[in-house]
Design a protein around this nucleic acid. Structure first.
Lengths: 214, 214
DNA sequence: CGTGCATGTTACTTGCGGTAACAGCAGTCT
DNA sequence: AGACTGCTGTTACCGCAAGTAACATGCACG
């Protein structure tokens, strides 16, 4: 039987694939999302065609790379989301987990958010229609599911949960992106401010009185 | 004096520049953000080097193009934000204005959000560090200013307003992006749901009871 | 008339994504 | 043993897009 044989080969191929992904990871971490296939191949000690045999095209490699990090980050977020604690505390823990992740490895984070939409000749495999980073979508859906499972939102609750899931993720992402660039405050302060926003402090705040004649 | 002369020439150059931008606009509207310089030049009835003389490089052209749309959208948003109405109504009007804009011209919107990060040889002019679309940043800052002007947030209010500005803009953007792709509900419903989120309905919602043993 | 100067062109370089086509090197089947 | 398969790896190439150099033309000014 060639089954054992095949399994051996597959194992080897998988190991190689993992090595290649790790090399790609190093390069992306160093050069950012615009790392070239040549550079990645060189880092892995091989040449381009092998990369293409393993991943099809650049989109495939990037998708595989993104999947790893996305999975890892989503695991952390799920843990924070599932902690046995007050709702507010859980939300703050989740925000903090995300922000800590992007703070620790900004290059990876930037890469995840800009999956290099098809720029080559043939279609590179990325649908322009759903251009937004898959990570955001996945996080949004995930959060929506948690919200819908945990909260009693009445009729139409499922849709509401999805809107909120994507909305909250977007809020987290944009605020985090801005914060990474300007560092106007500590992470803890940012977390508190965002949680305050979600807790309706915007709606509850009082109007300012100083407006002259307006 | 050559002043009048120069003014004439400058006028002519500005007109030309505007024509080129409009041509570029048409192409981007048709081909999406990955429109090539050749295609844009062809649409304008000229050849590449002229584009480069006018805009420096692709990044320059894209920046100029983005500026136009960004300005236009920001004007609409400011109008909605400044309407004489209830705070909730103003927030909903702003959300709706943004969503209507991206719904009407998705290609332009996508272009604005993905400014084609430097892919060419030399540095294309876009700083990778602040990769996020300038539109998002500008909207965030704008909203932050309005919030800070209008609301009495106590000490640290300015920072809070900035966090909220960028957070809300991100929420709007991500939810809008997702909504554009899936169209799970009407625009009005989406607006209501997002406003509800900002009004703290997430924090106020009751826990679900069905969880067995959890 | 020649001198500036903006406008326009063709033709080129560079670099990247992607693809043949070929070269070893296992193990397998007859 | 020898042909066959299937994987890994190479060099050399194509096509395309960004960006540039060098040349050509129309037009005002002295």
């Amino acid at each position: 039987m060639d089954t054992t044989q095949r399994t051996d080969q597959q194992r080897s191929a998988d190991r190689r694939r993992r090595e290649l992904l790790e090399a790609a990871d190093r390069v992306v971490l160093r050069d950012g999302p615009q790392a070239s296939m040549n550079a990645i191949a060189a880092e892995a000690g091989i040449t381009k065609p092998i990369l293409y045999r393993h991943f099809g095209d650049k989109g495939g490699l990037y998708a595989a790379l993104a999947m790893r990090h996305t999975d890892a980050l989503l695991d952390s977020l799920r843990a924070a989301l599932d902690a046995p604690a007050d709702r507010r505390e859980r939300v703050e823990a989740t925000l903090d987990t995300y922000l800590a992740a992007i703070e620790a490895r900004p290059q990876v984070y930037r890469f995840l958010m800009h999956p290099a939409e098809g720029s080559g000749p043939g279609d590179s495999g990325f649908d322009v229609g759903k251009h937004s980073a898959p990570l955001l979508r996945r996080m949004g859906e995930e959060l929506a599911q948690v919200i819908e499972e945990r909260l009693d939102l009445g009729p139409g609750g499922q849709q509401l949960a999805r809107v909120w899931g994507h909305g909250i993720v977007g809020m987290m992402h944009a605020a985090g992106d801005w914060w990474l660039g300007e560092r106007p405050c500590s992470r803890a302060e940012l977390v508190r401010s965002l949680a305050d926003l979600l807790w309706g402090r915007l709606a509850a705040a009082g109007d300012r009185v100083g407006g002259p004649g307006f």
